[in-house]
């Protein structure tokens, strides 16, 4: 590819990426969000974060991997339980990560 083509790729990707991220922010002072949409958007954080990590935690290249030998599944489950019981974010992260790496060490995968 020529340098011009590569520069155009960067420019084009920048325009669409930044455009998507900034278009609402740029007009934020006059944008009116209807109340129902505002209420619905409150569910975006939990929905998108869960949708990002669920496939990583519950599946592998072969499909569902709900096995107690799967470090991803067991680590995520541990984090979830710790988070629900103790409600301490740092503890949730540390214990989950510890369980994950210990399992990876001993079980592999």
């Amino acid at each position: 590819m020529s340098n011009l083509e590569l520069a155009l790729i960067i420019l084009g990707m920048f325009i669409v990426t930044y455009g998507i991220r900034v278009v609402l922010f740029a007009g934020a002072h006059r944008a009116e969000i209807p109340e129902w949409l505002d209420k619905a958007l409150k569910f975006v954080p939990i929905s998108v974060l869960t949708a990002i990590i669920a496939p990583m935690s519950l599946t592998n290249s072969e499909g569902l991997a709900l096995s107690l030998l799967n470090p991803w599944f067991v680590g995520a489950l541990t984090s979830l339980l710790i988070g629900l019981v103790f409600k301490r974010q740092l503890l949730t992260i540390c214990v989950g990560v510890l369980v994950f790496f210990l399992m990876k060490l001993f079980v592999g995968g």
Partner: peptide
């Protein structure tokens, strides 16, 4: 996995 655990810590 650090990201997975963090997201769970955020979601719970």
């Amino acid at each position: 996995f650090a990201m997975v655990a963090t997201f769970i810590g955020i979601v719970t």
